[in-house]
C-alpha cells in the first residue's frame, strides 16, 4: 500500500491517420499523492485532454500503464474501468457533459444511482444546495445558464464523494467573472472533501492555486514539480 492515488508509467498514445502514425503523447510518467492537487498546463493541441482521458480510464494508451488508487486501469476492460469511475472518479468538463433529458437533480444523482447508492436523491439535493441551485433542481440543462450548468456538473462530481476529480478547462466556456466563481466553488468543495484534484487549464492564475504543476508540450512532459520515481 503506497500513498499514490495516481501513477502514470511511460504513457504514449499514437493514432493512425490516413497516411501516417501521429504521436499525440510521448512517454509521460509521474505520480501524485492522495489529497494533493495537480495542474496540467501547456499550449493548445499539446495533448492535455488526451492525457486526462488516459488517466481517467476513458481511453487506453498505446504504451504504458496507469494506476488509479490500487487499480491498474490499463489492465482492465471497459466494464472494469467504468466501475472504477463510478466508484471513485468525478468529472468536470469544459462542455459540462450533462444529460439534456434529465433534470439537474437527476443529473446529479445518476452516478450515485449507478454506484448503487440508496440515498442518491438526498445527497443530490444537498449538493445542489451547496452550489447554490436549490431553486433549480427540477430544471433541465437547457433552462440553465452556462455557469449554472457547470455548477450542476460540479455538484454531480462531488456528490458521489470521489477519491479523485478530473477537470478539463472547467471555466473554458464561461466569462471571467462566472469562471472565477465556478473555480472558487471547485477549490472550496475540493478542500472540504479531501479529494485529489487533477485540473487541465490555460490560466496561470488557476494553475498556481494547485499544489503541483506539470507542463505538456507537443505530447511530451517538459516541466514538472512532481517527484518522479520513473526518471
Amino acid at each position: 500500500m503506497n500513498n499514490n492515488i495516481l501513477r502514470a508509467e511511460h504513457l504514449s498514445k499514437t493514432v493512425s491517420t490516413s497516411d501516417h502514425e501521429l504521436t499525440i503523447l510521448d512517454d509521460v510518467s509521474f505520480e501524485l499523492n492522495r489529497g494533493q492537487s495537480l495542474a496540467i498546463v501547456g499550449p493548445s493541441g499539446a495533448g492535455k485532454s488526451t492525457l486526462l482521458g488516459l488517466l481517467a480510464g476513458l481511453d487506453t494508451p498505446s504504451k504504458g500503464k496507469v494506476w488509479l488508487g490500487d487499480s491498474e486501469l490499463t489492465a482492465m476492460d471497459e466494464e472494469g474501468r467504468a466501475a472504477v469511475r463510478a466508484k471513485m472518479v468525478g468529472f468536470v468538463f469544459q462542455t459540462f457533459q450533462l444529460l439534456s433529458s434529465l433534470t439537474a437533480l437527476e443529473n446529479v444523482s445518476l452516478p450515485m444511482e449507478l454506484a448503487g447508492d440508496k440515498h442518491a436523491l438526498d445527497r443530490a439535493n444537498k449538493y445542489l444546495l451547496r452550489v447554490g441551485l436549490a431553486e433549480r433542481v427540477n430544471h433541465y440543462p437547457k433552462q440553465l445558464s452556462g455557469g449554472e450548468q457547470q455548477r450542476v456538473a460540479i455538484a454531480r462530481a462531488f456528490a458521489c464523494q470521489p477519491k479523485i476529480l478530473f477537470a478539463d478547462e472547467p471555466t473554458g466556456n464561461l466569462d471571467q467573472k462566472t469562471g472565477l466563481k465556478v473555480c472558487d466553488l471547485l477549490f472550496e468543495l475540493n478542500e472540504q472533501s479531501d479529494a485529489t484534484l487533477v485540473l487541465v487549464t490555460h490560466e496561470q492564475r488557476l494553475a498556481s492555486r494547485c499544489d503541483h504543476m506539470i507542463t505538456i508540450d507537443d505530447g511530451k512532459l517538459v516541466e514538472s514539480s512532481l517527484t518522479n520515481s520513473q526518471q
Binding site: 466494464e79 463510478a86 466508484k87 457533459q97 444529460l99 445518476l110 452516478p111 449507478l114
Partner: peptide, 16 residues
C-alpha cells in the same frame, strides 16, 4: 450518442 457518452463517462456500465 451524446447521452450514451455522458452516461459512460460517469460510470454507467454497458449493461446499464
Amino acid at each position: 450518442r451524446d447521452e450514451i457518452e455522458v452516461t459512460k463517462l460517469v460510470g454507467g456500465s454497458n449493461a446499464f
